Measured scan of single mutants.
Amino acid sequence: GLEHMADEEKLPPGWEKRMERSSGRVYYFNHITNASQWERPSG
């Protein structure tokens, strides 16, 4: 619901949600550090 939507907005600075086109899996990418990970970043 709306709570989940708001929660997605609160990623740490630099992080954004991305989708891997080949598999459709969602991952997280940090455009500041060029880091990427499957787990939702905390902090």
Rank of each mutant, 00 (worst) to 15 (best):
R40G: 02
G1L: 12
P12M: 03
R40A: 08
P12V: 01
E16H: 07
G14Q: 04
E16F: 04
A35P: 02
H4E: 14
Y28T: 00
M5K: 10
Q37V: 04
T33P: 00
S22F: 06
K17E: 09
H4W: 10
K17Y: 04
E20L: 08
N30T: 00
E39G: 05
D7Q: 10
S22K: 13
T33A: 03
Y28R: 00
G43K: 09
G24L: 04
M19H: 11
N30R: 00
L11F: 02
A6I: 12
S22Y: 07
P41Y: 03
R25E: 07
W15D: 00
E9M: 08
K10D: 15
G1T: 11
N30Q: 02
A6H: 14
V26P: 08
G24E: 05
N34E: 06
F29G: 01
H31N: 14
A35G: 07
T33K: 03
E9A: 08
V26W: 12
I32W: 06
R18L: 08
P13M: 08
K17P: 06
E20Q: 11
D7G: 10
S36R: 14
P12G: 04
S42D: 13
T33M: 04
G1P: 12
S22H: 13
G24D: 05
L11P: 15
S36G: 06
D7Y: 06
N30I: 01
M19P: 02
E16G: 04
W38H: 06
H4F: 13
M19F: 14
A35L: 14
R40L: 08
Y28P: 01
A35E: 15
E8A: 10
I32T: 07
E39D: 09
W38D: 08
Y27R: 01
S22L: 10
R18N: 02
R40K: 14
P41F: 01
L11H: 01
A35V: 15
G24V: 02
F29H: 09
I32P: 02
V26G: 03
K17T: 07
S42R: 07
W38L: 08
D7N: 10
E20A: 10
M19D: 03
R18V: 08
H31K: 12
E8V: 10
E20H: 14
E20P: 02
K10N: 13
M5W: 12
E8Y: 03
L2N: 12
E16L: 05
H4N: 12
S23R: 03
E9N: 08
M19E: 08
A6G: 11
Y28I: 00
G14F: 07
D7H: 10
M5P: 13
L2V: 12
S36N: 06
G24F: 02
E20K: 04
S22W: 06
A35W: 08
W38T: 07
K10S: 12
R25G: 03
K10W: 14
Q37L: 03
D7P: 10
E39P: 04
V26L: 07
A35S: 11
H4P: 12
E20W: 06
W38G: 05
H4T: 14
R40T: 07
H31R: 09
S42C: 15
S42L: 11
E39R: 04
E39M: 05
R40F: 11
S42I: 15
D7L: 09
P12Y: 02
V26A: 07
R25A: 06
P12F: 02
N30D: 04
N34C: 15
E20V: 10
R21P: 15
P13H: 09
P13D: 08
Q37A: 04
S22T: 12
E9F: 07
R18H: 07
